[in-house]
Write a protein that binds this DNA or RNA. Structure first.
Lengths: 151, 151
DNA sequence: ATATTTTAAGTGTATATGCTCATATTATGA
DNA sequence: TCATAATATGAGCATATACACTTAAAATAT
């Protein structure tokens, strides 16, 4: 009986189908596209999302926003830092003094408004290149994934 | 004629459909699931991917691997650091002395082998919870996305 | 054969992500 | 009311990501 060689090789082929790896790969690709498109605005795609979220919620606490964005609270806190440093947002204690509430500054609002066309352009380009059907399918799959695997 | 109020509110609703944001959100969710499942192995999902890739390619240069993984070269360099520190991989100059080639150490091979069942379990859980059909659709969409938007 | 160009890689800087632990404040229960 | 539990946050630590710039080595062109 010949000893079976380590089947490491065969196993690792499966790894090309790793859900995590493929998601991260696609995220790298798309984030680079968006960051590149947003470059003239001075803010990144991630930062744009935060400004837009704060704009649409109005005043909101950190924990609250982290739940809306399905983002770790401490990650959000860190991500807010560069926005606060550049005075795009204001962070002040809430009525419940455990909380800190977020609001856009005038500068933040202006930055968001100026950035919107660039975001829209990037988004439109992605939809066009993927085709609307594929894009809708992608978003649908991503949404299912978060809903089903979240928590 | 009534003046239209700032349509910032309406605009930002679209942002919930931001391709970049939704990808990042799903990636956060899935990465947390994988990292959690891999926790007993002492390596993270991202690191597992690197070990598996090096194992399947055999000796490989950094640039080469970065292209295989569709990953920025400098990102790969940084990601290799903790693996090298823990002596899971060896980085040595290649024949072309501009290059540095990567190989698994014995410890790296052992770590990869021990990690495989945990990765498989996480992957199986994801496929089961999403259902195989949805999972295949997701992977297909991610692959299209990278192929179409890459470069 | 040497000057020029191309290619591979490392480093500085900045952001993004999330776990663990510590602290402050509010809510609750005896 | 006062001790305890629950909640909101920040900070330390480690990794992940990528642009711009620099350096070294190989390829090429004259």
């Amino acid at each position: 009986m010949t000893s079976t060689p380590s089947n490491l090789q065969n196993e690792t082929l499966d790894v090309e189908e790793c859900t995590c790896f493929n998601l991260r790969k696609a995220t790298r690709t798309v984030t680079q596209l968006f960051d590149d498109a947003m470059q003239p605005t001075g803010i990144r795609a991630t930062q744009f999302t935060l400004l837009a979220a704060i704009s649409s919620t109005g005043t909101v606490a950190i924990r609250q926003l982290s739940q809306i964005l399905v983002m770790d609270r401490t990650t959000l806190t860190r991500n807010l830092k560069p926005l606060e440093t550049r005075r795009l947002i204001k962070i002040v204690p809430g009525e419940d003094r455990r909380t800190r509430t977020l609001t856009l500054t005038d500068k933040g609002r202006k930055t968001l408004e100026k950035s919107l066309p660039f975001w829209r352009k990037a988004q439109a380009e992605v939809i066009e290149r993927l085709t609307p059907k594929r894009w809708r399918d992608l978003l649908k799959q991503l949404d299912s994934t978060v809903k089903i695997l979240g928590d």
